[in-house]
C-alpha cells in the first residue's frame, strides 16, 4: 500500500470509531417514571383495583361474571381457590411432579434450585434470587434449566417440561405470599431498578413501553380487552393458556412484545430477568396460586 492510501485508511477508520462511539448510546424514549411500591398494595395508588382482588378466596362472583367489571378482579377469578375447575395446568402439575421426582432421587436437584433441607415449601415465593453459582439473578425457570442440565436432562427455559416442574415447585408455596427483597442494596435491587427502567422504555414498531398502557390506561379498552394493573401478576405463573399450553412469565413477556410489535428476546435474557424481578416485586405480599389458567 502506498502512503496516501494508508493515510486515507487511517482517516476513515478514525471517522468510523467516532461513529461507533456515538452509536454506543442510542437515542431512546422513556415514559414518565412512576413511583412504585415493591408490594402488591402499591396498586391502591395506581389503579385501586386491589381492593377487589385483595382476598383471592373471597372474590365477588357477580363481578367475575360481568364483562364490564371483571378486569377489576385482575383475572384472579381464574386462580385457585376461587377457580376450582380442572384444566391443563393440573396435567402440567402431574407431569412436573413425575419429572421432578425422577431428577431428585439423590436430592441434588432440589438443593441446586435452592431448597432448604430438601423442602420446596416457600421456595417459589423467594424467586427470582441471586444465584452464586450462576453469578447473577435468576428466575425459577432459568434455574430449572441449569439444574436439569447438571442431571443430564434438557429442560430449556420456556419449554413445557421446564414450566411443568416450575408449577410443581410453586404448588408447594400455594397460599404463601411472594417475598423478594428489592430494597436493600444488592444484585436484586439493581435488577429491580433496571427492570423498572425497561418497563418505561419505548421499543418496537409502535414505539410503546409496557407503561404506555399499564399505568395510565388501566381500565380502558384496548385490542378488544381491558388493560389491567401490573401489580399482583407474578403469583400465578407458569399459567395454563389454551394457545400456549403452558406459559412461563418470560414467555408472557415475549407474547406482550409480539402483540405490541416489538422484537422479542430469548428466555433467560438479562432484560427479561430484570423485568421478571420488577413484576415479581410488584406482587410482594400476594399469595402464590397455581395451577392457574388464563384465556
Amino acid at each position: 500500500m502506498k502512503l496516501p492510501q494508508i493515510l486515507l485508511t487511517l482517516f476513515f477508520s478514525a471517522c468510523w470509531v467516532g461513529v461507533a462511539q456515538a452509536v454506543d448510546a442510542p437515542y431512546r424514549e422513556y415514559d414518565q417514571m412512576e413511583d412504585y411500591l415493591p408490594h402488591v398494595k402499591g396498586d391502591m395508588r395506581l389503579s385501586g383495583s386491589y381492593r377487589h382482588w385483595k382476598d383471592p378466596a373471597n372474590l365477588d362472583w357477580r363481578m367475575a361474571g360481568s364483562p364490564e367489571d371483571n378486569w377489576k378482579l385482575n383475572w384472579k377469578f381464574m386462580d385457585p381457590p376461587f377457580n376450582a375447575s380442572v384444566h391443563g395446568g393440573h396435567f402440567a402439575l402431574d407431569r412436573g411432579e413425575s419429572i421432578f421426582k425422577e431428577l431428585n432421587k439423590k436430592g441434588r436437584f432440589a438443593a441446586c434450585l435452592g431448597a432448604r433441607k430438601g423442602s420446596l415449601k416457600g421456595l417459589r415465593a423467594r424467586y427470582p434470587m441471586y444465584r452464586p453459582e450462576l453469578k447473577h439473578v435468576a428466575g425459577m425457570e432459568e434455574m430449572i434449566e441449569h439444574c436439569g442440565a447438571k442431571e443430564g436432562r434438557v429442560l430449556q427455559n420456556g419449554s413445557y417440561d421446564n414450566s411443568a416442574i416450575s408449577v410443581y415447585v410453586a404448588s408447594h408455596s400455594n397460599g404463601m405470599p411472594i417475598n423478594i427483597n428489592v430494597t436493600s442494596s444488592g444484585p436484586l435491587k439493581a435488577s429491580y431498578e433496571r427492570g423498572r427502567k425497561l418497563f418505561h422504555t419505548r421499543a418496537g414498531r409502535f414505539n410503546l413501553a409496557c407503561s404506555s398502557c399499564h399505568t395510565k390506561q388501566i381500565g380502558l379498552n384496548l385490542r378488544g380487552t381491558v388493560v389491567t394493573t401490573p401489580y399482583g401478576d407474578a403469583a400465578h405463573f407458569p399459567v395454563y393458556r389454551t394457545r400456549y399450553q403452558l406459559q412461563s412469565l418470560q414467555l408472557r413477556f415475549a407474547e406482550c412484545n409480539l402483540d405490541a410489535r416489538t422484537q422479542p428476546l430469548l428466555p433467560s435474557s438479562r432484560a427479561y430477568t430484570d423485568l421478571e424481578v420488577f413484576i415479581t416485586a410488584l406482587t410482594n405480599g400476594y399469595p402464590v396460586s397455581v395451577p392457574s389458567e388464563r384465556d
Binding site: 407431569r95 436439569g148 436432562r153 434438557v154 429442560l155 430449556q156 427455559n157 420456556g158 419449554s159 413445557y160 417440561d161 421446564n162 414450566s163 400456549y244 399450553q245 403452558l246 406459559q247 414467555l251 415475549a254 409480539l258 422484537q263 422479542p264 428466555p267
Partner: peptide, 14 residues
C-alpha cells in the same frame, strides 16, 4: 428474522 416461541406439550425443548 423474528421468531415466536412455540410450546410443545411433554417436551423439554422450546
Amino acid at each position: 428474522m423474528t421468531l415466536q416461541p412455540k410450546v410443545v406439550v411433554n417436551s423439554g425443548r422450546l
